[in-house]
């Protein structure tokens, strides 16, 4: 029981506290590739601290939704942290509260909440971003949920921990066709959801702005909470990609070995950051209306994966 509590605390605190670190490492590595000195890898923490100390401005005419949704979305991501295998490979205390599909739907729920809050601000720019997100997400969320359903077809259970165990104990399952399709589809969705360069230029550029525009009217503490949720979302999606699809090995569960999971996860993330960085520094950003083509390809892969896993088993 004590081990279980310790594992739960480790997973929750690690995701909560280390999520901004990976964004920092990514920014630093990218700067190094581009021959810049770049910010410190702890820059996201400094940003969060600075924002937490600043004054919070709320647009006139916005409702209670605008003020409280960042906290609710943050809570949703905290809940997702507890139900999918992002650090510890065995179920922890709150795992039973939802299955894999529940996790996918919680991601969609948080995205919906953020969109509703951004619309509530009454800003034109935020409304533009919301309309972009809404027109892209119907394929993005569809592909995400399809991939998660299809994963459950492999092991006949909707439990990501079982999938992880299955992939670890059957190495040949990692190179099957269905698994390759699923990994590809999920990786494409990961790039889209985290706003990486072929799809979205980071920062406040109006032409390439999708996800960032949701934060447009936020300031101070609320902006800090929103940014923190974004880091957590990136960490959660990336860790699902690593632990369930790309690289399921190397995680431990018994006391005291589960503490080794922390360096293992950091190592795995360095691998993922390396892959994403190669993509970011070699590809150009696609035009905005081409993003739908990209997502259609991801959706096609996920549906093909669903069909093939149904036919071949």
């Amino acid at each position: 029981m004590l081990t279980l509590i310790l594992e739960t605390a480790t997973q929750f605190l690690f995701v909560l506290l280390a999520a901004p670190l990976f964004a920092g490492i990514f920014a630093k590595f990218k700067a190094m590739v581009e021959s810049r000195k770049g910010p410190s890898i702890f820059q996201p923490y400094f940003d969060l601290l600075k924002l937490l100390k600043k004054e919070t401005l709320v647009p006139q005419g916005s409702s209670i939704l605008f003020r409280y949704v960042p906290y609710v979305a943050f809570g949703v991501y905290c809940l997702i942290t507890l139900i999918i295998p992002v650090v510890i490979p065995v179920p922890i205390i709150f795992t039973a509260s939802a299955d894999f599909l529940g996790g996918a739907i919680l991601f969609s729920f948080a995205a919906f909440l953020k969109m509703a809050a951004a619309m509530d601000s009454g800003s034109n720019l935020a409304a533009m971003g919301v309309s972009r997100l809404a027109s892209f997400n119907f394929l993005g969320e569809g592909a995400l949920i399809t991939v998660f359903i299809a994963v459950s077809l492999i092991t006949a259970t909707d439990n990501p921990y079982t999938t992880n165990q299955y992939l670890v104990s059957n190495p040949s399952a990692n190179i099957t066709l269905v698994h390759v399709f699923a990994t590809l589809a999920f990786f494409m969705i990961f790039l889209y959801e985290t706003g990486k360069i072929p799809l979205e230029s980071s920062g406040m550029q109006e032409l390439g702005m999708i996800d960032e525009s949701l934060n447009y009217e936020y300031s101070g503490r609320l902006l800090a909470v929103n940014k923190w949720s974004s880091y957590m979302k990136q960490y959660l999606l990336g860790s699902v990609l690593l632990n369930v699809f790309l690289f399921p090995w190397g995680l431990y569960s018994t006391y005291p070995y589960f503490l080794l999971d922390i360096p293992v996860m950091i190592g795995k993330w360095l691998l993922l950051i390396f892959i994403v960085m190669i993509i970011e520094t070699t590809l150009a950003k696609v035009r905005l209306f081409k993003i739908l083509d990209y997502l259609a390809v991801a959706f096609t892969f996920s549906i093909l994966f669903l069909l093939l896993s149904e036919v071949m088993h």
């Binding site: 259609a296 390809v297 549906i303 036919v311």
Partner: peptide, 21 residues
């Protein structure tokens, strides 16, 4: 229109797999 074409194509495939096959 690539998304439209792909979605209709997927419908074809679903029909091919689940009914005819």
């Amino acid at each position: 229109n690539v998304p439209y074409l792909f979605l209709v194509d997927l419908v074809f495939i679903v029909i091919a797999v689940f009914i005819i096959y």
